[in-house]
Design a protein around this nucleic acid. Structure first.
Lengths: 156, 156
DNA sequence: CTTGCAAATGACACTCATTCCCAAATATTG
DNA sequence: CAATATTTGGGAATGAGTGTCATTTGCAAG
């Protein structure tokens, strides 16, 4: 999908290459890729599902809450991480699409959990085309779309 | 789309009929359709775009903040109003789809505004089918989907 | 049209997710 | 190493949203 040759999750040193990409991206914006930020990215990469701040801190208790929030914000602004507002108490965070691939979500409206799903490319193409048609009529500049299915997860 | 014969927005006494529908729906759940709730619905019906609580109170200063929040919640639980989490400071509310029709949103990631859009039925059908295919494989029970386009609005 | 009772109201206190603050620590540059 | 800039983390502050409770309102039965 992207012109850059990103390694895929099955890759041997997927994490190492990903860190290089992210470090370069942060450097371009005069930000340092510190260990705290690296830990954040690793937690999200290993979970491969959107996480809340309590999830993240539980997964790596070395992370300080205030720094985690601040660094999540830096990474969101740099396009490394994406912020999801699912309606529960906490915002969810996940790696951005260039790192994770384009996908959508199953959102449980009872327990607030979020799971990733992938749609067929035929659907994606049609959706993208329809949305950009509408956007251009309104003077809206599209950046990305979100398509989520809300309902009850298997556990609920 | 629905079996019931709801009046359409062009209708003479659209509001009156809508209030009847909502009153009946609330009564079924042992709730009263009080003047505060009616005002809430009228504000949202007239704005025909999702509003935050400050928007709502500004549009009708008679509404008390705590009651407005409580009644919004009652109306959400009763399926009259839908809650949207757009990522800004405030949650947005809009009339639910049975009253407003199925639609999607343009969400400005700079100013937080939300605007309604409608997609062609071919897109809707394809999306619906794809989503329910995936859901059934996962044991997820779909209730509704949301498809939003994020970007910059014409004003930003 | 009272009386009784459950639901609703609104002012205000409170919770808690997130942001702000700032002095100490760490990295970068010359 | 000195000088400068960014980052860190603990705790205080912010503010959207919720809870509390005494008062009011709406409805039903007599």
């Amino acid at each position: 999908m992207t012109a850059e040759s990103l390694p895929v999750p099955g890759d041997e040193d997927y994490l190492a290459e990903m860190h290089l990409h992210i470090g370069a991206r942060l450097a371009r914006q005069e930000h340092r890729y510190t260990s705290g930020r690296r830990q954040l990215v690793e937690v999200l990469a290993q979970a491969n599902q959107p996480m809340t701040l309590p999830d993240i801190v539980a997964a790596d208790p070395d992370l300080a809450q205030s720094s985690a929030y601040r660094n999540l914000d830096v990474l969101v602004r740099s396009g490394v991480i994406r912020r999801l507002s699912a309606g529960g108490d906490h915002t969810h965070f996940e790696l951005a699409e260039p790192l994770l691939g384009h996908h959508h979500h199953l959102i449980c409206i009872r327990c607030g959990s979020i799971e990733d799903i992938h749609l067929g490319s035929d659907v994606e193409i049609l959706v993208d085309q329809s949305l950009s048609d509408i956007a251009s009529q309104t003077g809206f500049t599209p950046i990305h779309h979100s398509l989520d299915l809300h309902g009850h997860c298997a556990d609920c």
